[in-house]
Design a protein around this nucleic acid. Structure first.
Lengths: 334, 334
DNA sequence: GTGAAAGCGCTAACAG
DNA sequence: CTGTTAGCGCTTTCAC
């Protein structure tokens, strides 16, 4: 092993060509003869040359795409990530994930860090930020936003049709005879709009109104604990709901805990539904009725749109994925 | 907004100093007067200057640490990540996660990608690779390996005492009167040694022998499906085990599903224990007895060791974290 | 204590 | 089709 790293100059010397030629071969750029291609490729293999990403970043691309995760703990993310990496598997792009946390400040720090590192494009999952900030980011770097409704010209969007998802749940519960159907949503401190929970809550409200029913919402957080607290509050009411629709499965798990503790049988005494159809929802012991949004398709779509943008598309695209209702044992007739 | 990005030269011009001076102030390097410091800082704020990571990478550090994730779906990871990011919160370092997948090949591709991107250090979580490859990586970049026993001089290690964890489970089950205690482990295709599942299996075997009992293992995978399949196989035996110890909670969830489907009550007909104490293990409906390894501490420790290495330590360190047994409702007397 | 200047490895014109 | 050359933004000697 030589002292330093193998550079393009080493390869050029070995192959007896110029550094520019090596650069072209590496990038598969136009204008190289087959002979040159062969010589250089051989030298690359012999020397074990690997392009230095930072040096590339100074002039061209980094072939790095960043995915900003808003909450590492959300079991829905692995599906999206799998969709993204799966779509990019046979390309030159590498995917790096940035744990942004749930605070606007930490998320902003993360996106800044990704931009500082010259990433070629960014996928932001449910970013908690203002439209203005988002537009500012997208002005300098190709961006695809996942899970935020009401797209903007500056970036592409991939969303689940959350209004439809919420309606599917309400229709299902009403069909079972329920009328006192409560909803647990996520309390947002930031002034961000069009986030999934907001739209789900709005869809819930619309669907209830369409059935001539009064809505009943409580805002905690999309965590197991948040669902638990929300359910405790709802179940303590004198005329308690007979069904609870949690805006996320993770919160629905908390609802189930609260029901267990209150000695209520599910679904006999209380029907429970969630959203996201996370893996454990299908466990027999959980058997949670949930809305499935196919994270893999969402992730793959986001990756596709991002690459298109990087490669030149400027017209904004919004892709909407239709959810489906998965009925399981946690919901039943009144 | 000017056409290009704000560079160190812009700041220097504004502050009326040299670029070298600005560089020193930005890095907090030795040898700058308070006056200089103030002038430059002000110019940085006014211009909104941000250091260009790629340019820095050409000469010095990138202030980027990479965490290679071997399986995004493992619910145990968020704890580790939280520990890592928490420890690094008030430092200049940024953490980027690399989804390496479960294949040796994809993991290698990921670590290569991280090295190409000049990351200052790498944390590898349960990497599936040979000791030789690991040593080669660590020769060029500071590395901390999580969850792999039998450390090496080239890198630091943070491990859970898996032998102890397995013993805790076996002792607990034997104390409840069980003698036919089976273990579900992960089938490794690669020739990697010292991975957690291997050590847990070995710990299980040792503990069983210490009690004068015969071991009974089945190797599938640490997934919900793997646990399900393993349990199906075990429960189909004529003299079926009365207790199943799964090497990971995620697999234990599959065991519970198999038990439910077979019409077996837990823990009356079958005791089930897992490992990792993932969040949902505490849900009343799951109530899984499990071994807790405090991922936050593991993550924070790994981050601390990595920074120490980056800053010059060369002596290898291995940090072992003691697990604890969390007894819940899934295990009971025979 | 401060500044001038030489690169780090690569890409993008532009000549040949 | 191939080679020469000029930087990208930053850090780092080394003079002053």
């Amino acid at each position: 092993m030589t002292s330093g790293r193998v550079t393009i100059a080493d390869v050029a010397r070995r192959a007896g060509v110029s550094t520019a030629a090596v650069s072209k071969v590496v990038r598969g750029a136009y204008g190289v003869s087959a002979e040159m291609q062969a010589k250089v490729s051989q030298a690359i293999d012999e020397l074990g040359y690997r392009p230095h990403a930072a040096a590339r970043a100074m002039r061209g691309r980094t072939y790095t795409l960043g995915v900003m995760l808003s909450d590492t703990r959300n079991p829905f993310f692995p599906d999206i990530i799998e969709g993204v990496t799966g779509h990019l598997r046979d390309t030159e792009y590498q995917v790096l994930l940035g744990p942004g946390g749930i605070e606007p400040k930490t998320q902003a720090r993360m996106t800044d860090a990704m931009i500082d590192r010259s990433m070629d494009g960014l996928i932001l999952i449910s970013p908690v930020t203002t439209d203005a900030e988002l537009a500012a980011i997208a002005a300098g770097t190709p961006v695809v936003v996942i899970g935020r409704h009401g797209g903007a010209p500056a970036y592409d969007s991939v969303v689940d049709d959350d209004v439809m998802g919420a309606r599917l749940v309400v229709d299902h519960l009403v069909g079972l005879g329920h009328t006192r159907i409560a909803h647990i949503t996520h309390l947002e401190r930031a002034r961000a709009q069009g986030l999934p929970h907001t739209v789900r809550a709005e869809g819930y409200r619309q669907a209830m109104r369409a059935h001539g029913l009064a809505d009943d919402m409580v805002a905690t957080s999309f965590t197991e604990e948040g669902g638990y607290e929300g359910a405790r509050e709802l179940l303590a009411r004198e005329n308690r709901p007979t069904a609870i629709f949690a805006g996320a499965d993770i919160a629905a798990l908390g609802v189930l805990r609260a029901a267990d503790e209150a000695g209520l049988s599910v679904p006999e005494d209380l029907s429970v539904a969630g959203y996201d159809n996370i893996g454990i929802a299908s466990l027999k012991r959980i058997s949670l009725t949930s809305v499935d949004q196919d994270g893999q398709v969402i992730g793959a779509t986001a990756a596709r749109l991002l690459v298109e943008r990087i490669e030149g598309r400027t017209r904004s695209v919004t892709s909407s994925v239709s959810p489906t209702l998965i009925v399981r044992g946690s919901t039943g007739p009144l």
